[in-house]
Design a protein around this nucleic acid. Sequence first.
DNA 1: ATAAGTTTGTGAAGTATTTCACAAGCTTCC
DNA 2: GGAAGCTTGTGAAATACTTCACAAACTTAT
Lengths: 212, 212
Amino acid sequence: MTLPTKRIAESTVRRLSMYLRYLEGLDAIGQRTASSDELAQLCGTTPAQVRKDLSFFGSFGKRGLGYPVHELTEHLQEILGLRQAWQVVIVGAGKIGSALAEYRGFKQRGFQVVGVYDKNPDKIGRPWGDAVVRDMSTLPDDVTEHHVDIAVLAIPADDAQDVVDQMVAAGIRAILSFAPTSLHVPAHVAVKTVNMAMELEGLSYALTNRGA
Amino acid sequence: MTLPTKRIAESTVRRLSMYLRYLEGLDAIGQRTASSDELAQLCGTTPAQVRKDLSFFGSFGKRGLGYPVHELTEHLQEILGLRQAWQVVIVGAGKIGSALAEYRGFKQRGFQVVGVYDKNPDKIGRPWGDAVVRDMSTLPDDVTEHHVDIAVLAIPADDAQDVVDQMVAAGIRAILSFAPTSLHVPAHVAVKTVNMAMELEGLSYALTNRGA
DNA sequence: ATAAGTTTGTGAAGTATTTCACAAGCTTCC
DNA sequence: GGAAGCTTGTGAAATACTTCACAAACTTAT
């Protein structure tokens, strides 16, 4: 695996993640190799795209044969930074936070949930999965002390920027936000936002303009 | 408002949705006009991008002044197809489905949840928000009879394609999926997928390669 | 050992999207 | 009413991303 010489597009990284998912599946059922064509069909993309995406990071396949499933799986885990544990906190112990807690993908992929936070006194101290809901006011100190890497934000839009500022000051390095608002952070902090309303409205647009 | 002559990029539609959100906020506090620069700062994009996005649909602003907030709000609602009600079903009455039910954005923006479905007998018949969980086997008929427009899919990846096929056959027109798998549908059906794992892995990649 | 058949890796071409830059149009001030 | 000051709308330029197309490299069959 070589290091990419130029910046990799976000769309490429998303597809790598998808390739990995399917490769893990193929690996589990004992399939040894997979062609770019097979991966493309599974992921709903094109063979050329698969090859181009992978080629940014090295040359993992064998001509005439395809890609070695197990080996490529490991390469992709390495590339995506999944062969190490990331420390994650969940901020907001509401329904969304709760749904996230249930999500097995976290542990499965090396994301360790080390804390859950809320500002509601009724929720603080309550057991929550393996953990206990902690007071949001302790969040910044905890982030700093426990070297938390990623914060998952599941709080109302109005509170989001304020909490983000505190966490950034405390040294957070990445944020996955479910708050329907745009977040402003310094360049060294990575942010992804999942916005339900935006997705639904995208569908509404598609339905409205489907003929055109 | 003119109809766009060429296909509008998905990224543009996502931004329109974001502009709308902030415009509604500005409208609520009585602000009369907003410049592309102001909208850009709120949304984390550039003034040129804002103007270009809007220009695909018409010429809503006044030079020297900016865009009329209330009027543009209505135009965007129209463009995005939000001035009509869409019939939505939620498929999967687990934690994610439950979090979605709580989501006020649905009703607020004209998405009427007309049914919740699950295949688990323990859940069928239970009250769930305003509704009652229905048997998944009745889903296809309901979709056809009630002209359901959008299905929100909150079920395991392994079950997803099968359910999608049934709904497509029953006449569904759009799907918002939270199942971490790629879905195959005919061209006339719009699909959006929200994939937690993909977002987290995107952050993991960013953290791993932040220096590069 | 050779031929036939696959499939990768990748420059080059093609498309799509964003950014630039500025004329045109509107408001406000004097 | 004219000048100064903003801000839009938009072609053109720049950048980014995807697709093409084919030589190179490998496997398998004979």
